[in-house]
Amino acid sequence: MNHVEIHRDECKGCAVCVAACPHGCLVIGDTLNLMGYQYVEFVGNDRCTACGLCFTVCPEPGALVVYGMKKV
């Protein structure tokens, strides 16, 4: 299933991906990561289309990995 893998300790909680996602698949959670940021969580389940916008706008190189059904 399409989904976004979140490396919680690489996320700085800027929420730019949250605003970018067209289907509301991402939210900022309540818990803190090792850097002390409230990191993003994936709540998309069946809504994610693996469009990659979250990855593209995210400033961190490896915080997000987008998995999709379609072939690259």
């Binding site: 300790d9 693996a50 593209t56 961190e60 190189p61 490896g62 990995v65 999709g68 059904m69 690259v72």
Partner: peptide, 27 residues
Amino acid sequence: PDVQIQYSKSASMYQLFFRKENDQKTT
């Protein structure tokens, strides 16, 4: 089985950033 990585860290960037002793995955 048929889920593949569509977007992930670029091969043109280092896997680890050796500037700091800790947090070598973030800028």
